[in-house]
Design a binder for these strands. Structure first.
Lengths: 222, 222
DNA sequence: CAATTAAATGACTGTTAGTCATTTAATTAT
DNA sequence: ATAATTAAATGACTAACAGTCATTTAATTG
């Protein structure tokens, strides 16, 4: 009896097509200015139907965020997988994240949504968990690379991989966000190149992680 | 004729008392869940009157944010003023910011509001400018300390004070935010002490800024 | 104390997230 | 094939809320 399976498949397809509509509206107008009616129209469905597939506007937003995570996790895993040195992997991950923030700016911006619980009071546990899980998967990629880097002698033994992952990731995120909204800020008047800042800060952090031996092969430019 | 002056003073007092009401409501419920009616009631005024003093809910929120900035700027200036070594000043500034985030969590959280233009579409130019100016004043304190640190031989000559300020400030902000919402995140399961992470990341960044000479007097713990 | 100006009010409007009784379509049983 | 049953879709409706504005109330001036 594959009737039920087909039903399930169709339901999933509909969920995706609703998400397509939501994504295009959210990308264009942002969370606040987007309306459920507009999303419904784009999805060629009535508003009521949206609520049969997603519990709230916040859930739709989270659904789109999860798509972003899928892409990001793909890029990160890709960057961490080739058979190159630990340093190179870390550099690749950095580039992958940076490129993601540039090519998928909308997703990148949306990620901040997760940081303000007050903005997603209507979000369901399920979708919040899903996004948290994905976020965790992204972190794991980096933690893994750092852990292996300690084993292979690239990084000092007395650093904690989780701590370092937090530091590197937080730093990159913060500075990439700054770049994203640069024009709205006073920074525009101080002719600072944010790309340089990102490079430098990464170099500074990584340099203090390296073993004396690793420093012989790679000298970050401070 | 001080009639006009008195009027002006009274108007300012009213603005402040409205802000008192707004602050207590915003602190309790956050931006979204707070309503203008509730703020009006707390201020013992009608909703219409609020709009004679503030253009929008977003403006009220920005007004409260500016109060937060006042406090923060005070603490930062205080930390940067005593006649101690550059290193000590920088450490004091770090502590001041950290203490602010802990004691004035509400203000600290509200600052994120400035980062998402989509959430303050109704904000007036005036108040946005005011908050940006204040933000700039906070940055200037740090930039100043770093600039002087280069002059007095604490920091390397080839670092850029603005770049370094951005790096240090962004890093601290990002990690303090993480601490603030720690419980909502996967991190809770990984028993990482965020305070340690903050200490470490600061030490790492500062250590790469120091001149060889300065390193003799101060060794950050990595 | 009348006339004028300024401040305050709250009923009203427009917008929108979310609901639910009703309709329409699909599936199953006869 | 067709009736009965179940599932999917609809859109009119509600409640909540930001912001407005004609009207009222208070203060100031002549």
């Amino acid at each position: 009896m594959s009737k039920i399976e087909r039903k399930e498949r169709e339901k999933q397809l509909r969920r995706e097509s609703i998400l397509d509509a939501a994504e295009s509206v959210f990308f264009e107008k942002g969370l606040i200015a987007s309306t459920m009616d507009e999303i419904a129209e784009k999805a060629e469905l009535s508003k009521g139907t949206l609520y049969l597939y997603y519990r709230s506007k916040d859930d739709l937003y989270l659904g789109v965020i999860c798509r972003g995570f899928d892409i990001l996790i793909g890029k990160l895993s890709e960057a961490a997988s080739p058979d190159v040195s630990t340093i190179q992997k870390l550099l690749n991950i950095g580039s992958a994240y940076y490129n993601f923030s540039q090519k998928h700016t909308h997703y990148f911006r949306m990620f901040s949504f997760l940081e303000s619980p007050q903005f997603h009071t209507m979000a369901s546990e399920e979708l919040l968990n899903e996004s948290h899980n994905q976020s965790k998967r992204a972190w794991d990629v980096i933690i893994d690379v750092i852990s292996n880097g300690i084993k292979d002698g690239t990084f000092r033994e007395n650093i904690d991989p989780v701590q370092m992952a937090i530091i590197l990731w937080s730093n990159a995120t913060a500075i990439m966000k700054l770049k994203d909204r640069k024009d709205q800020f006073w920074i525009e008047n101080l002719n600072v190149d944010i790309d340089t800042v990102l490079q430098k800060s990464n170099a500074m952090l990584v340099s203090t992680m390296l073993t004396e031996n690793a420093k012989r092969y790679y000298q970050p430019k401070l």
